[in-house]
Simulated assay, not measured.
Amino acid sequence: MRLLLLGGSWFLGRAVVDAALAAGWEVTTFRRGRTGHQGGVRLVQGDRTEPADLARLATHGPWDAIVDTMSYVPRESLAMARILETVADRYVLVSTVSVYEGWPVEPLTEHSPTLKCPPDADADYGVDADPGPSRYGFGKAGCECAVTSAFGPARVAILRPGVILGPHEYVGRLPWWLRRFERGGTVIGPGDPARRIQPVDVRDVAKFALRCALGLQGVYNVVGLDEEATMGEFLAACAEVTGSAAEVEWVPDEHLIKSGVKHWTEIPLWRPFAGTWDISASAAERAGLTTRPLAETVHDTWEWLQNAEPMAHERAAELGITPERESTILEAWRAQRP
């Protein structure tokens, strides 16, 4: 099996390469090559915005399948897909649940309405609202249209993950929580400890992407299938693997909102909207998606952090509440709680 991976070597792209090599596939990667190179793959360096680089990439084909982890701008994806259509049999695009009109407010299935974005749109297309649509979501929706228009629906599989966690995560959501428990003290437990959450392990996303590369088509939501995964169990797993004596004090959504806490960033993985963690992955499950328990992802990420730190990334700088602000919010909650 000959695979072309479009994307970096940091997180999901790295996991796809690892899984493909373990399966005995021949792997080519196309990226700018500014970070570490994984052994056992053929690296073609180039910029997806440069037509000459895309034309040069095509000369290294053909491939049985493409897995694209780094499409954000529709017109760039359209140009790339048109060039690669003649040298690849299938295209697996990693999109996002942010393409849905109702995310994160409404429960979602693969049949939920999606944002409308033309396949030749640029990076500024769409609007940002909170909660509601984002330029990120509009862009990903346009990338889906771009790839499908070039390859045709029968040759395309679209993966729409929710939150991806696991070793080598560079955004830093799970690493932040682990480091927070390592520090100790009193930790804000956001909202309801019984709230079910649906993060998915990066290695399980990679494995399913390769399954799609073998011949699946259509749209698949990709979220964790662990029925025992709640916010309470997640924080308990973080405390256990770090050996932390930290105490969790649960603060209701209403107080956190009143305090102006920035959901998703100041307290990673906390979002007080009903649809955030109500995403059906039934189509992917029927197609063979399996996911490991969230506690295993927490354990393996902590083990990785013992020997490495997440690579510097602009999104990581936005994450986490300061100790001073956390204390202020807890004091205010204690003063008014029943």
Rank of each mutant, 00 (worst) to 15 (best):
M1P: 11
L3N: 02
L4C: 09
L4W: 04
G8C: 03
D18H: 13
A20Y: 08
A23F: 02
G24F: 09
V27S: 12
H37N: 03
Q38F: 02
Q38T: 07
G40L: 08
V44L: 11
Q45H: 05
E50T: 05
P51E: 06
A52N: 14
A55H: 12
R56I: 06
A58H: 10
P62L: 07
I66A: 05
V73Q: 09
M80F: 07
L84I: 05
E85K: 14
E85F: 01
E85R: 15
D89M: 03
L93M: 08
L93D: 07
L93H: 14
V94Y: 07
V97K: 04
S98M: 07
S98K: 10
V99F: 11
V99P: 10
E101D: 13
E101I: 10
E101A: 15
L108G: 11
T109D: 11
S112Q: 05
T114G: 01
L115Q: 10
C117Q: 03
P118R: 13
P118F: 13
D122I: 11
P131R: 12
G132W: 11
F138N: 06
F138Q: 05
K140Q: 06
A141V: 11
G142E: 08
C145N: 14
A146H: 05
V147P: 10
P153C: 04
A154V: 05
V156W: 04
A157S: 15
I158F: 08
L159F: 10
G162I: 07
G162V: 04
G162F: 10
I164L: 09
G166W: 03
R173V: 00
W176Q: 02
W177T: 01
F181P: 00
F181E: 00
R183Q: 14
G185F: 01
G189A: 05
G191N: 01
D192M: 07
R195S: 03
P199W: 08
D201W: 07
V202Y: 07
A206R: 06
K207W: 05
A209H: 08
A209Q: 05
A213E: 05
G215C: 03
Y220E: 02
L225A: 14
L225E: 04
T230W: 07
F234E: 02
V241F: 02
V241K: 02
S244K: 04
A245P: 00
A246L: 05
P252I: 09
H255E: 13
I257L: 15
K258V: 02
K262Y: 01
T265Y: 06
T265D: 12
I267Q: 08
I267W: 06
A274Y: 08
A281F: 12
A283P: 00
A287W: 04
D300P: 00
W302H: 14
W302C: 04
A308E: 11
P310M: 08
A312V: 13
R315N: 12
R315E: 13
A316F: 04
A316Q: 14
E318H: 13
G320R: 03
P323C: 07
P323W: 01
E324C: 00
L330Y: 01
A332K: 13
A332G: 15
A332D: 14
A335N: 08
